[in-house]
Design a protein around this nucleic acid. Structure first.
Lengths: 240, 240
DNA sequence: AAAATAGGATTAATCAGATGAATAGGGGCA
DNA sequence: TGCCCCTATTCATCTGATTAATCCTATTTT
């Protein structure tokens, strides 16, 4: 058992020490200033609240006060990842490799936990995606694409893996904001997804995993895509 | 290419937009207040600096000003993870599962990149650890234990995997702060490490990986251990 | 002349207080 | 009862002041 995990933040330590639970309201800022609580000034309290907010640990709203949120790994990962991506897009490839290996590693455990309802939901995503397909170019990744993959892992009892995967899809959306692909491409993608889903339904998780791995290769080559609307460079002065 | 990755932070967006590089000095706080830069007050600048500092993105020191650091995923992961662990130690098991799968997934790629010098360094860790062994109980994990495992992955060109592994060892140390094991246990651990290292040196990465997996099972069972010094509970009032 | 030291200037660190904006809750009116 | 407005609370942001840490420089000392 740990002696004490020092969080390098009076506020976070205070939250732990007082045993606040997700959903609980924290004292107001003025109360937190009180020597019995944190005993620091408004500005300092707000600095630490801002850190906790950035990490997605608390939600701070006017009047209502501050509420402790359910723990999620996602915000911290996303924030750090997005900063990295903003400095250099090549980071995406590395995070992408992490994502693929993660899905493969936790594949069977995640699949085994899926319920019939979950499978039906996945089937719906396939249907919805197919219904959207037409002759025109469609944005990648689609909402259904994200929902399908995250849906496979949603029962995995591991907030860290889930957080990394969620952050991955957030990043994907941010990075590929203006990427579009044509009908044939999306058709192929959803053929793979259907194959994956069928295998899972049949209980053959390994076959599903194999299909997933093939499918990531397809995505890596990214054929038949183009950028719609002129993309704006980062360093551009007009970006604002 | 992304239209624009919004970091939800004036300061971080400012850093990106102005193309600051690691090592660069950012403007002083008073300069950042200037409408030409951020145009926000001290308190707001400091809030955002504090977030950037918590994420390990900048180092802010008196007089010297603020310096942009080399990107690392570790601080963000560690901070979020430590908060989770402080609320519930069971999170450690889940992060531990993530770590094991990660090492396995990136094992061969990491091993393939090791140089002769790296291998010699790993050998030194084994030697140093063995030299420390005696009849007495020794703290786990030892410094060499951490260095050995991180050493295997140090050439892996993936800051995200590395960040997760580093944060794992930080957490391990925090969580197992007062855990000690006897001679026989450490002997066994370093036998495994030596087996792993020998296999890597022989170029048989798969055999090394297999040894690694066995070795994690050993650690999971954690025989012949005990807590030295009375551990202090989290919620304890005297913890401060 | 070189090194050590002391003093001044710059900047971060922290605080106190004021003002504005958002919101919940209560009271009044139809 | 149901709707609307008013008020009190709380967050949001800014300004200004004081303290502490650090660097730079000029002066002193050897």
């Amino acid at each position: 058992m740990p002696d004490r995990i020092d969080l390098d933040s009076d506020l976070l330590n205070y939250i732990i020490k007082n045993g606040f639970q997700p959903g609980d309201r924290l004292p107001t800022i003025s109360e937190l200033q009180d020597p019995n609580n944190l005993g620091i000034s408004v500005s300092k309290v707000r600095e630490q609240l801002e850190v906790a907010r950035a990490l997605g640990l608390v939600e701070v709203r006017s009047k209502t006060g501050t509420r402790l949120k359910e723990y999620s790994f996602t915000p911290a990962v996303r924030l750090s990842l997005f900063f990295a991506l903003a400095t250099d897009l090549r980071f995406f490839e590395q995070f992408s490799a992490l994502r693929t290996h993660l899905e493969v590693a936790f594949w069977n455990e995640a699949c085994a936990r899926l319920t019939m309802d979950d499978l039906a939901e996945l089937r719906q995503h396939v249907g919805a995606a197919r219904a959207k397909l037409s002759g025109q170019w469609i944005r990648i990744p689609s909402e259904e694409h994200r929902a399908f993959h995250l849906g496979i892992f949603k029962r995995l009892d591991n907030p860290f893996v889930l957080g990394l995967l969620e952050a991955y899809w957030d990043a994907y959306e941010a990075v590929e904001l203006n990427r579009y692909a044509d009908y044939a491409y999306h058709q192929q993608v959803w053929d793979y997804h259907e194959r994956i889903l069928d295998a899972i339904c049949a209980g053959d998780f390994d076959a599903a995993k194999t299909a997933f791995i093939e499918h990531t290769r397809l995505l890596r080559h990214q054929p038949r895509m183009q950028d719609m609307e002129s993309p704006v460079e980062f360093s551009s002065e007009v970006a604002e």
